[in-house]
Amino acid sequence: MLGDITLGQFFPGDSPVHRVDPRMKLLLTALYICLTFLVKDFIGYGLLLALLLFCTLLSGLKLKFMLRSLKPILMIILFTFFLNMFFAKGDRVLFAWRFIVITEESLYFAAFMALRLVFLILGTSLLTLTTSPIALTDGLERVLKPLKLVRFPVHELSMMMTIALRFIPTLLEETDKIMKAQAARGADFDTGNLLQRAKAMVPLLVPLFISAFRRADELAIAMEARCYRGGEGRTRMKILRLQAVDYLALLLFLALLAAELLRQRLL
């Protein structure tokens, strides 16, 4: 019943993109986001598109899967597009009817903003599609390490994220099972108005909460039984080390960033 929900959308693979160190990937994604906001015209977007296509081809992912990640936010993109189209200011009127005025500038601006959203989502999807959730939290822990100086519980936070990610499939499976069990007793989750649907969730949520608490309890005991006591002095089985591919990727991104900035300066 929940088969169409793709959470933790990681696609396993062994491409250069998959092999980039998660810390580097986080940094590159940050650079990519900066680049998306720096771009001021469609030529810049051409550059972004080339980068994105290059990375996607390199990663061996199907374009279909990349585009699928746009589906959940399609409404937001369309909303932004129309809002900007109707309300951005401009001089050259293309279409006017009562209070609706579309100008050439507003159309340009609307397309520009919508594309920015598209590029943001596609770029960050590439990160989550090619990085396993565990590697991602691992990378995040290392990237956030400086925050320890201000007593921010970095290790605890990443452990919480790891556990949360680990339990998403388990809880989804459990939800599916309870949904089916209640459906077998005639429960109906799909029809009725909003209030009825909210009420129909009770037979699903109560057992789900109970089992989530039970699992949390069991996990805590299992971790204590194996002497877990937090981050201090903990060593790692997999130590992250930067490789040639990481530096190459960084170089590529920095070069693109510089090229774009230079182009904007000169033209």
């Binding site: 209640q182 077998a184 005639g186 089992s211």
Partner: peptide
């Protein structure tokens, strides 16, 4: 609904569906 009225299905560990 009619099918489920006629065919009862008890899942594994059905006590986890009590609410």
């Amino acid at each position: 609904k009619e099918v489920r009225r006629q065919v009862g299905l008890v899942f594994q560990y059905p006590e986890y569906q009590l609410f």
